[in-house]
Nucleic acid binder design. Structure first.
Lengths: 326, 326
DNA sequence: CCGTTATATGGAACCCATGCCATATGAAAA
DNA sequence: TTTTCATATGGCATGGGTTCCATATAACGG
């Protein structure tokens, strides 16, 4: 590919003058400018951003670490984050960690090498300490990564409470919630603690089913739903994320149990998945787009060297009534 | 951040020697090596990939152009592509074009500047000519971009035929297919031509409904489904992509029409969405992961400067029986 | 003991831009 | 006429690595 030297040679000027034209800075005679622009076109020249980035010590790239891109929650998150980054003139790199420490660690190292200007991490497997050594701006989604890394999340306490209350209103007497198997304590796990607490306060038995999958795959959800259907025949209320909730409804339907007549379901997340099953899901909705743009806004602040007003952003959840509860 | 100069100074050696240690090349005394590694650790030094990339004239980055990240088809595609790229030691940049020429053009320019090593494009809005000037390796998903850009797609003719035959087997007498509004002729549009053709061969009336949305949003799909439900009351067979098919089933159900008793539906794509509605969808499945890894394999070949054996890769589609047809 | 080779290290050009500084010209001000 | 300033342009250090080449010492065979 042509370089600025080639352009300078062809236009018979110095590289500095070409640079001035490229960046529209300093004095350049109109005539000279034309000559240079002609040379640029003739050579199909495009400035090398790598060289620019080296000089300016910034890349214009931000990275997103997610456990799984095709999970609807993260797909929507990435979608919104990319759009927000674009509006800041930033490009977006994605890193799929598959919930594995190795991937996460390797990617962090890679991103540090690539000198990305900032990182938004939505993964939870790696130790906090590993993040300390990455001296780039970082924003965490749904995870507390120490004192100097801001955390963006929704109000999961409220979400867990809303879910519990919806099932109680729906008349449930014995409920089950499907929880993740996360080792680290994340804000999002709080919803399960609150959910259980509210149930106990109301004298309702609450079973915690710990999911075993670590891939987003409908067949895994179905398998879990089948196991639940066989093991717990007397549950009349479920709390799970969108996809698992959908799998539960379908699986139990095949066992002859109708939702919402025989049992109720409250889902969590509120991705488009919640409108697909029949009956449609009553869901606690996370404002994914707002989460993403908050992360990006915050990250851009860090990139500019500004101090964020708060290290903990908590957005509100929303209750969306579907047909899976009474 | 520390540079190789800092490391050299601290270890009291030349930068060349440090470089040798970093790249494990040439001769370095064990003692010196240790000294250098100590300095690296003490300074928390990480080599600057931007500088490396500049010298080597390659970035180790590939870019994915997609119309919309959160669309399940593309989310799964990106997911698989990222994984494949990772196995080649490549990082993945994503660009959301929202089906707009401006975004697509702007991103192409940006990617050229950033000197990404390769581009996989899954978007169709921009003129072919614009791709000629991007002298980087490109692979196109589902689109013919001239003679020297390879195209990866599924056998859409077969897909369209299978869909038609499924509806015929299901006893349909008047069918409707929901098509995109694409201006450019893409391999994927072929399925609609074949579908219509097969219907006519069998003396079955076929209506083409051209979708108006250009965002992936369930409410848009529902609106379209509502319009269809009201305008065409005598249709007993539908052909549409997963999400639209789901919306049709739900909307018609609310109008008192049961699937598959009163009408049949064949969906296209075969993302996880097809397992969510009730009844589950009979679908023509595109092997999205294989499409993605084919694109990546092909792109890596181009990056290495090899000539691909074929400029047209066609993968097979699969018929998956659900409960939305008889 | 000397020429040859393996080992060990550093200097400097190179990758491709940017932008400071030096230099040169023409015009306006003094 | 001389000083001053706006205009115009080019040279070169800089950013942070890599690698070729030059140089130096130690080990080895003859």
């Amino acid at each position: 590919m042509a370089t600025i030297q080639d352009v300078a040679k062809r236009a018979q000027v110095g590289v500095a003058t070409v640079s001035r034209v490229l960046n529209d800075s300093g004095y350049v005679k109109a005539e000279t400018k034309e000559k240079i622009q002609r040379a640029i076109k003739e050579l199909n020249y495009t400035p090398n951003a790598v060289a620019r980035n080296l000089y300016h010590r910034k890349t214009g790239i931000a990275a997103l670490l997610v456990p799984e891109i095709s999970h609807p929650y993260f797909a929507e998150f990435i979608d919104a984050a990319e759009t927000a980054l674009y509006s800041y003139g930033y490009q977006c790199m994605i890193c799929n960690t598959w919930r594995e420490q190795n991937y996460e660690a390797h990617y962090l190292e890679l991103l540090k090498q690539q000198r990305v200007d900032g990182i938004i991490t939505g993964v939870h497997t790696l130790d906090i300490d590993r993040y300390r050594l990455i001296d780039r701006p970082i924003v965490a989604l749904d995870r507390q990564l120490g004192d100097n890394i801001p955390c963006v999340a929704v109000n999961h306490e409220k979400g867990g409470r809303m879910a519990a209350e919806a099932l109680i209103r729906s008349g449930c007497r014995k409920v089950l919630q499907v929880t993740g198997q996360s080792h680290v304590s994340t804000p999002s796990n709080r919803r399960h603690e609150i959910f259980e607490q509210v149930m106990h306060e109301n004298g309702i038995e609450c079973i915690n089913y710990i999911s075993k999958w670590n891939r987003f795959s409908y067949t895994d959800f179905r398998d879990a739903a089948l196991e639940i259907a066989e093991k717990y025949t007397d549950i009349d209320g479920f709390f799970a994320t969108d996809m698992t909730a959908a799998a539960l409804i379908h699986t139990l339907y095949e066992k002859g149990r109708r939702c919402p007549q025989d049992f109720s379901v409250v889902a969590y997340d509120g991705t488009y998945v919640s409108s697909l099953p029949y009956p449609s899901l009553t869901t606690i909705v996370q404002p994914v787009s707002e989460l993403a743009s908050s992360c990006v806004d915050l990250l851009m602040k860090l990139v500019r060297g500004e101090k964020p007003e708060t290290m903990n952003i908590r957005l509100d959840v929303e209750y969306r009534q579907g047909s899976s509860t009474l």
